[in-house]
Amino acid sequence: MRFSGAIAVALLIAGSVFAAEIPPAERRSGYDFMKPDTRAMQDEDTANPGMLWVLDGEALWKRKPGAVNKACADCHADARTSMKGVAARYPAFDKATGRPIDLEQRINSCRTSHQQATPLPFESRELLALTAFVARQSQGAPIETGTDPQLAPFIARGRELYLQRQGQLNLGCANCHDDNWDKRLAGSAITQAHPTGYPLYRLEWQSLGSLQRRLRACITGIRAQAYDYGAPELVELELYLMSRARGMPMEAPAVRP
């Protein structure tokens, strides 16, 4: 009985120490945690492998894939002006489905409804390229995701998922990214999980990858069941993380270790 008293005290202390949100002034991009050579790779367009996808995306922007023979450019003209700041507002509320959708899903919804083309599979070269091209037009723009009041319940859901402990290792995202972002998990810096640079080139993947791919990797890492690509839960997590990063500058296509 003395012992359970000790547990109660320990719990009270732990409750006040852990699960603190990161104050805005202390927010840091994953970029800040990287070595100088990896930073240089991101900073130099000629050294950044993500730019290969951006260039592919620029070509796809002008292609006419579907039955109605329309390219993205036919509706949106020059992406440099029409797509400026767009990625910094995603995921956004989609009236047709009454739910938030991310940038990849928005591109696919344009493909199916306006181009009458087949949707591109998640993580396909083409979808990553188009997303990287669109996201690149927001480079340096402050993240604005989540201001639409219709998104509030979905942001709340994303935050719940972020706090929820799960998997065989019984960890929640916040256990690492809010409470231990200044530490190292084996050799890796943990970072604060601000999704400022997606889609991004990850050296470990030897490829560009989406934010959903990153989230699935962390979920599998804690030995939980990863949600399928496009699952509402993943979009809610993306939405929460982007709104949590509001005001931070967009870096896509970023580079990460």
Partner: peptide, 24 residues
């Protein structure tokens, strides 16, 4: 059992866990 808020996983436990992947 010693610290309910610990991040250290329970290595010999199968109950009270959420959404454990099928492999595990």
């Amino acid at each position: 059992r010693l610290n309910a808020a610990t991040i250290m996983p329970s290595y010999y436990r199968v109950d009270g866990l959420h959404r454990v992947g099928t492999l595990w």
